[in-house]
């Protein structure tokens, strides 16, 4: 400590060099960790990209369209898995969006007394916390046997439609899509609820004051005002559905050929990774990395779009 003008013993108004170093050092440490988040995301992309390189070199864009995934001959094409990823996620949205928005409406309007509404919000959030692998287990032993009857009826009655053209077994695209819809429902409903609740209450009063009914107010004022938040939530749910692994792996059947039928067994990129990574070697690892890169790119695209949409909403609210 540099003793300053010493008419105030024991007190120094000049901070010591060490104290200042510690202070700026502390700030630097936090900066580095914050920047570490960016580095992590870039490192994921880079690392997976580098490992995928041999496969990218060998198969190029034909990897997207090839339907053969053959570790014995070392020929890899991921169309079956890409198709499965897109179609399961799409069907899951088709089921979960109306139900999720419906739930969000119940949880944001005053249909129920708040003593009932609050626990309901908690229960829906709880649905989001249940591990994927438990959904898979439940899907195999409870949902699949339960759906067998109705799905067989669908096949027998509407079998002439390509979508229902194969007899349903306990595994297949349809059941993976249904379990996905259950898993993404809480995301859709909780984000939609937040955006519905965020609509300025004076707009509701204005609409009621003009003689609109509750549903006219919802459809013409509340939902249009909250729509970007709802879309953002749906996009996040789409990203989650495309990347969801365990429940899908356990239920989709892991077949390596595409089929137009929803009852046929199929595969997704994440299911492919989950099934093969542990025993892969050589070019197969590179091909799997390539597939992982595609999945990463797909979810990145969806999440960035979601982020942009949601951010727009937040700016508007300010």
């Amino acid at each position: 400590m540099a003793p300053a003008v010493d008419n105030n013993p024991g007190m120094s108004y000049e901070r010591t060099q060490t104290a200042r170093t510690v202070d700026s050092g502390f700030k630097w440490v936090t900066t580095i960790f914050a920047f570490g988040i960016v580095v992590t995301l870039l490192a994921i992309a880079l690392q997976v990209g580098i490992d995928a390189f041999p496969a990218i070199q060998k198969f190029g864009l034909s990897f997207f369209t090839g339907v053969r995934w053959n570790p014995v001959e070392d020929i890899y094409g991921a169309w079956t898995q890409i198709y499965g990823t897109l179609v399961t996620a799409f069907i899951a949205l088709l089921i979960a969006v109306p139900i999720g928005v419906g739930v969000a409406i119940i949880l944001s309007e005053d249909f129920l007394p708040s003593k009932v509404q609050q626990p309901l919000v908690f229960l829906v959030e709880l649905l989001a916390a249940i591990p994927s692998v438990v959904f898979g287990l439940w899907g195999i032993f409870v949902l699949a046997p339960f759906l067998q009857g109705p799905m067989t009826w669908l096949h027998q009655t509407f079998g002439w439609i390509p979508l229902f053209s194969t007899p349903p077994t306990g595994r297949g695209i349809y059941i993976a899509a249904i379990i996905l819809s259950i898993m993404i429902l809480p995301i859709i409903s909780s984000i939609s609820r937040d955006s519905l609740v965020g609509v300025n209450p004076s707009l509701r009063q204005a609409a009621y004051g003009l003689g609109a009914t509750r549903w006219e107010t919802l459809f013409q004022v509340i939902i249009p005002t909250a729509i970007s938040g709802i879309i953002g939530g749906v996009m996040l749910a789409l990203g989650r559905a495309m990347g969801e692994t365990m429940a899908v792996t356990m239920l989709i059947g892991n077949a390596n050929r595409p089929s137009p039928s929803l009852f046929a067994q199929g595969s997704t990129i994440s299911a492919l990774l989950a099934n093969q990574f542990a025993e892969a070697s050589g070019l197969q690892v590179a091909a799997l990395m390539y597939a992982a890169l595609i999945l990463f790119g797909l979810t990145l695209l969806v999440n960035v779009l979601a982020e942009v949409v949601v951010r727009k909403v937040e700016i508007k609210k300010l």
Binding site: V48, G239, L273, L300
Partner: peptide, 13 residues
């Protein structure tokens, strides 16, 4: 964006 990266991709990483 990182929170939206599928968990299996973390595994691959």
């Amino acid at each position: 964006v990182l929170s939206g990266v599928p968990s299996i991709v973390m595994g691959v990483f």
